[in-house]
């Protein structure tokens, strides 16, 4: 009999042998952070372990002076006879899957475990691509864990976005896209065609651009939106803003505009309509249904924990259709990050 190396506790996922939490939602001594989204990175812990790419973002989000140790992708770190490795998750800049392997006396009694954090299998030029990780126990996210979620090719989506922007210009409308400030906003920027017109960003997004540019990610020139540059580029500009800006007075300076939302949820017509926005672009930083199934299969794991999302149906599907030992893990943070309120203070 082998036991789970990682278990679920009221503070989140925990490895008792290493005494380390992964993405804990309360303050702990040692926390490994898969990525800097608010539903994975919480303040107050004594020490944090993350990738070097994640570090500056984590400091912006949790505070400049937090205690961070970094571990590059694919390099081992030993701790209490447990080998820790971070592997690219392809979700946002610096996002990692956490592989924990039992060594020495634990090797015979415990299963190796990989915690996926959030991940996607579709290409994204703003972060290191997802790598499948062999393990015995895989804990996967399931934000879009239903077969109705199947992403279109992102190149086609970006063509649509640029065409929409261009078309808005012919009607003298400013284009505004609401999207999550960390990850999606930068991915969106990287896909825009700067030849079409000026690109303005909301303050909450602007402050997250330096870590990306410093890491060598190619982004088009942008300006933080101000009353002046907004007025000067009315009817021409593309504006990227967090969802919390929708319907706020901040929008006034852009004049007549057309708005859109970029998210995996836009796959469903009903969600698009409820947002009452002009357009919905299907662009997600999470794995779609085929992505989840292929990632799970590639691990070779027979025990699968399902967290963050549509846990019960995916667990049942894996049990009944794939004969895997799949089980749901309840999380405090339910729902996809795109839909949680923007936690950054709107600085503009």
């Amino acid at each position: 009999m082998t036991a789970d190396l990682v278990v679920s506790t009221d503070r989140g996922l925990y490895c008792p042998l290493a005494d380390i939490h992964i993405d804990p939602w309360r303050a702990v001594d040692r926390a490994i952070i898969t990525h800097a989204h608010a539903d994975h990175a919480r303040p107050g812990s004594k020490t944090y372990l993350c990738t070097p790419e994640s570090e500056p973002i984590l400091r912006i989000r949790l505070g400049k002076d937090i205690n961070i140790q970094t571990l590059p992708y694919n390099q081992p770190l030993l701790h209490n006879d447990i080998r820790i490795m971070l592997h690219p998750a392809g979700h946002v800049l610096g996002s990692a899957q956490v592989l924990l392997e039992p060594l020495g006396p634990h090797a015979r009694t415990h299963r190796s475990c990989c915690i996926s954090g959030d991940y996607k299998t579709t290409p994204d030029p703003t972060c290191t691509p997802f790598e499948p990780v062999r393990c015995e126990h895989f804990i996967t996210e399931s934000t879009f864990g239903l077969p109705i979620y199947r992403w279109p090719d992102p190149r086609i989506v970006f063509d649509d976005i640029n065409a929409w922007w261009h078309n808005n210009q012919t009607r003298s409308l400013t284009s505004i896209i609401y999207t999550y400030a960390l990850g999606k906003a930068q991915r969106l920027l990287a896909g825009l065609d700067p030849a079409i017109g000026p690109i303005l960003v909301h303050g909450a997004i602007d402050r997250l651009l330096p870590p990306y540019r410093d890491a060598g990610v190619q982004l088009p020139p942008t300006e933080r939106a101000t009353a002046d540059n907004a007025k000067a580029s009315r009817g021409r500009a593309m504006v990227i803003a967090p969802p919390s800006a929708a319907g706020s007075p901040w929008l006034k300076k852009f004049g007549k505009h057309s708005d859109a939302f970029a998210s995996g949820w836009m796959q469903i017509r009903g969600t698009r309509r409820r947002r009452s926005i002009d357009r919905g672009f299907v662009l997600s930083d999470h794995a779609d249904w085929p992505g989840l199934l292929s990632a799970i299969e590639a691990t070779g794991a027979s025990r699968i924990g399902i967290t963050h999302g549509v846990v019960t149906p995916l667990a049942r599907y894996l049990r009944e259709e794939k004969s895997l030992d799949a089980y749901p893990i309840s999380t405090r943070f339910e729902g996809e990050v795109d839909d949680t309120p923007e936690t950054d203070p709107a600085t503009d």
């Binding site: 239903l146 077969p147 109705i148 017509r269 009903g270 149906p313 049942r316």
Partner: peptide
């Protein structure tokens, strides 16, 4: 895709 999972999807998509 099993019928029960289609029902889950229908719930989520509403149509």
């Amino acid at each position: 895709i099993p019928l029960w999972l289609i029902a889950e999807c229908h719930d989520a998509a509403g149509d």
